[in-house]
Design a protein around this nucleic acid. Structure first.
Lengths: 207, 207
DNA sequence: AAACGTTTTAATCATTTGATTAAAATTGCA
DNA sequence: TGCAATTTTAATCAAATGATTAAAACGTTT
């Protein structure tokens, strides 16, 4: 089994990653079959192990990449010192909704798979640091301090913001079925929420 | 292989169901091993198939029972003609939070597994009927009509109410890790939300 | 206690599934 | 071109897993 200096074929490598991302996001780790990934990528099953060693390593890579993209988005918005608290909320909501409308299965993938390794949030991705050391957190504390928003613990605020924004994606199949919504109608509602959520957040935080 | 008139042993039958419920809720269908259920129930693996025929049938039973309990709770509150709209919200929130604090894995179980068969919501459980033909839906429409609440489409309202109430359970491992919360602190927050959510809902619906 | 139905067990099966291997095909380049 | 490294394939392996079977244990009735 050879493998030496030359960089591995980017297109085959990439085809596998793209297929793996799709299948893992859709079915989760346990329900995913490596044969299914290979088929979706149009490659021989052995190639998957040739390039990525094992199902688990491929999964870890997809998991990390998926998470990293999301965290980069948060970080950029939340650390910006030139926007107000409410502007940050609007930016977060709009950016996330746009991003998740592209890959709506991501939120359920994340909450399902994070259970098996929540420490990645702290150890690798530094999420608590990014959130609680940010301009956003400072502005939030300050606004509570000077009474311009209600003294709501920031974890309640975080639950609400995520509940408004990402919960609909998590529950999409359920909500579409209950509400007899077409995928287009669901998308339309999420577009509306880009405007609505900032207003709701303002209402919740009114002192 | 015998099986005749006499009712099957309730305690063994029940032990398996209890173990299956626990394991399925925790790991989902794909990651669950029938051997693990048998071990958790303290029975021989073959007994599982003796009583329940197959993993899939046992799963369908647990799924149906889990769902039925939740829907019964909604139905009771939402069809009550003697409570106001806002009382119904308070009742729903308090009842659900109490119920889910007992089995916090249920919401993630539901949203994960419903994807494979969302039609059960319509065909078996009649969830759309229960919600949209209820006193609650009538009161909501009426209140929009006479301007006592904002004209928010009821599906947005439903997303928000579920986002407030069940999303924290879905994201519990993530939220606990990010916020360095002990399970007790998480429970405490959910108790606080029984008071907070109705206020937030009122704020959102203010005309 | 004998007979019968029911429940439980140990052993085993067949299939699925992640992974490996050895050989073939392809590519880069001296 | 020819050679060496790399990439790809078909075939196969070993373990895991859902399910079955045949026999043993148990309980109830007569």
């Amino acid at each position: 089994m050879p493998k030496h200096k030359q960089a591995i074929d980017a297109t085959t490598h990439q085809k596998i990653k793209t297929a793996a991302r799709m299948v893992f996001h859709q079915k989760g780790y346990a329900a995913t079959r490596t044969r299914h990934i290979a088929e979706a990528a149009g490659i021989n099953l052995a190639l998957l192990n040739y390039y990525f060693k094992s199902k688990e390593q491929l999964f870890n890579l997809i998991m990390l990449e998926t998470f990293t993209e999301l965290v980069a988005t948060i970080k950029e918005i939340v650390t910006n010192p030139n926007t107000s608290l409410h502007q940050k909320v609007s930016n977060l909501v709009a950016t996330y909704i746009d991003q998740l409308l592209q890959e709506p299965q991501i939120p359920l993938f994340i909450v399902s798979e994070i259970r098996n390794n929540p420490q990645i949030l702290v150890n690798t991705l530094q999420v608590p640091n990014i959130i609680f050391q940010s301009a956003f957190a400072r502005q939030y504390a300050q606004s509570v301090q000077n009474g311009s928003i209600a003294p709501l613990p920031i974890m309640h605020f975080l639950m609400n913001l995520l509940g408004f924004t990402v919960f609909p994606f998590i529950a999409q199949p359920m909500l579409q079925t209950i509400g007899s919504l077409t995928p287009e109608q669901f998308t339309q509602m999420m577009q509306e929420r880009k405007q609505l959520i900032p207003k709701w957040v303002a209402a919740l935080l009114a002192p």
